[in-house]
Nucleic acid binder design. Sequence first.
RNA 1: GGUCCCAUCGUCCAGAGGCCUAGGACGCCGGGUUCUCAGCCCGGUAACAGGGGUUCGAAUCCCCUUGGGACUGCCA
Length: 448
Amino acid sequence: MASKKTRVRFAPSPTGALHIGGAHTALFNWLYARHTGGSFVLRVEDTDRERSTLEYERTIMDGMMWLGLDWDEGPDKPGPFGPYRQSERLDRYREYAAQLVDQGLAYHDGEAILFKVPSGHKVQFDDVVYGHIEVASEHASVTPEGTIKDIVLVKSDGMPTYNYANVIDDYEMAITCVIRGEDHIANTPKQILIYEAFGWEPPLFGHLPMILGMDKKKLSKRHGATSVFEYSDLGYLPDAVINFLALLGWSPRTGEEVFSRAEAAELFELDKVTKRAAVLDTDKLKFINQEHLKRLDPAKRLELIRPFWVQSGLPVSDFDDAYLAQALELMGGRGQTTQELADYSDYFLSFEPVKARYDAAEIDPERKPVLRAYYDALLAQPSWTAPEMEAFSRAWSEANGTPLKQIAMPLRMSLTGRKVSPGIFEVAELLGREECRQRLAHYGLASK
RNA sequence: GGUCCCAUCGUCCAGAGGCCUAGGACGCCGGGUUCUCAGCCCGGUAACAGGGGUUCGAAUCCCCUUGGGACUGCCA
């Protein structure tokens, strides 16, 4: 007998952009769905009339798309279980609530409808991640004073509450496993009580560990980037963010740490998720990002760096793709983000930033003539290729008793304005003889 | 306060009673390669919260303590 097809959902409320914690939850749902060949549903929980907006809904979808987390059903992808916005399902919540009232399990309280919390029995479930959890039914919902508190199903404004709408929707949408943050584990007993009232079998539950900031406090604005788009702006690759997030609370059996979205989906196992809250470590994110950056093919890499160059005001359109790709090729593994890579390679596109940051002030005026003699000779070489320039330079430095470093470094500074760059002869070759001549001349290190 | 959850290097993970004098990764610190840096190579630093049990044997099971956290909203 074939087992029931897996169906999971990510149910954000559109009250802000997709933040990193939400992305983590969405990712694990997505991984589970893709691993099991099931469906991933996007459900919008917009029952908070005050704070929910369509713009935020759009932003959240954009964030998921940026990360490559595609959903099979959602507000924009009608399916057999729609509609997928809670605000469009109000009639169902009312009907079911009325049913409970008829059965004497719920009652009206003004405009609201409350669920009568039963007592005297155990509410229990086996969390895929946390294991067996059980709570006395009378403890499922209590006031701070410890007395039993009935659960609000429908608010005075006619909207369903989170705990209620979740149950109705997960049931109606045939969700087989609810994967969400650990902060919801305490809500689960309340929801199970509602499932029981209807006589429905609850889905599986799998709670995910929380994600904390470096100070071990719940992630918030003060921890820097929180929206996934901030990571995009900072130059992180979606694949890297996915890879990094997947490693928070999980790791593949293979022990690999750098992997693609597809590999993660293939290796994912919900019951291997850890219980302990995880601290988001940006150093590791950067490392993972760098690894993904290194693995990108040249064309893709150029496509990702280009916008950052453009944003810096560099004359990108003055160069052809072959030149730009070659520049990035030379950059090798330098830079941990596309942002850094674009920044570190600016001198390939313009001399302006070089002039702005370097003025050759540290070069002893008395040394200039000798340096100039070398650079002029270099510029006069018959062939402008890195190996030949290097060979010539080594020979020259030896003949003049000058360490190669002493002539290579000023060259690097004049050409790039930085103490750090790829092999300077390779850089010079790509820049071209004339460009190099002009840059050196600007610093008085070569004849015009 | 009540209910529930968690507890291995600074951080992320491995470890499902003997393979653990606890392993990997990031970070950090050395060394090597080199025109600089990144990279790459080599090496190092650093943890089972504490206390009781159970067992021939515990990081792994149980209990207590301590420390974190979540929930306790007609927010989700």
